[in-house]
């Protein structure tokens, strides 16, 4: 679905049908996806500029265009990236795309089981936890219900990080949505296998517990360090809030 919104063809008929239904309910859905992907691009560029060379991208999905390793290795060729996704097709596809790139790895794990991710031998082989790294949880937290304790998941990840590490978060938010739109979008997702858990700006800010938010904090994703002033206009239409936090010390 996400890939379809980004203009890709790495998708199946069922994804496209759901995506079109979503567009009917929320016309700006493709824009949301694109804005979120652009946020990821700017965030990774910010991180490489900040000297980060290790990336753990959890919930990476089907990497089509504008992947973390492409952005990071463009700016810093020695960057190492581990992709984590729970979907076997996404993992298989990632392996195919990443074949031959020995600074990347892909594992099939679930964000909701961070201990398994952190202990995975491929993760341990690729990333040095004594050095700063960036953990990216982009456009995936809204698939994690409150029952699965997202705050605890993030705390577990934080505890494994060296000082100077970063956390990048974005997720769908209902801040400023009207009821009808919210209900309709949730209804569409409910019909898929992935129910949606939208959260407020305060909740998302709470997830950065232990990190210092870098400027401009938790904002609509187009407003996060925009390249041009125009690109941040009507930012709440992007539906996604995002932010970057740094682990002090």
């Amino acid at each position: 679905m996400y890939d379809y919104y980004l203009g890709g063809s790495h998708n199946f008929a069922v994804d496209r049908a759901t995506a079109r239904a979503m567009v009917a309910a929320v016309p700006q859905a493709p824009l949301m996806a694109q804005a979120n992907r652009a946020f990821l691009r700017r965030a990774v560029q910010f991180l490489t500029d900040a000297g980060i060379r290790q990336f753990l991208d959890i919930g990476s999905g089907i990497p089509t265009v504008g992947n973390v390793h492409e952005i990071a290795q463009l700016h810093a060729p020695d960057s190492r990236v581990v992709y984590v996704d729970v979907d076997p097709v996404a993992v298989a596809h990632s392996r195919e795309i990443l074949a031959g790139n020995d600074r990347t790895a892909v594992i099939q794990e679930d964000l909701r089981q961070p201990d398994r991710i952190l202990a995975h031998p491929d993760v341990r082989a690729m990333l040095d936890f004594s050095q700063p790294m960036a953990v990216l949880v982009v456009a995936v937290l809204h698939f994690v219900s409150d029952d699965d304790r997202p705050a605890e998941v993030l705390r577990t990840l934080r505890a494994a990080l060296a000082p100077g590490s970063y956390l990048v978060l974005s997720q769908a938010s209902d801040d400023g949505r009207d009821e009808a739109e919210r209900a309709e979008a949730e209804e569409v997702y409910r019909r898929t296998d992935s129910p949606l858990w939208v959260r407020s700006r305060a909740e998302l800010t709470g997830f950065f517990d232990g990190f210092e938010l870098v400027e401009p904090g938790v904002v609509w994703v187009p407003q996060w360090r925009p390249e041009t002033p125009e690109s941040a206009e009507d930012a709440e239409r992007a539906v996604f809030l995002g932010g970057v936090g740094r682990l002090g010390g």
Partner: peptide, 13 residues
């Protein structure tokens, strides 16, 4: 892209 994603799906299966 379609071929690639189908291949991935098949691999996964």
């Amino acid at each position: 892209e379609q071929e690639s994603i189908r291949r991935a799906a098949m691999t996964a299966r």
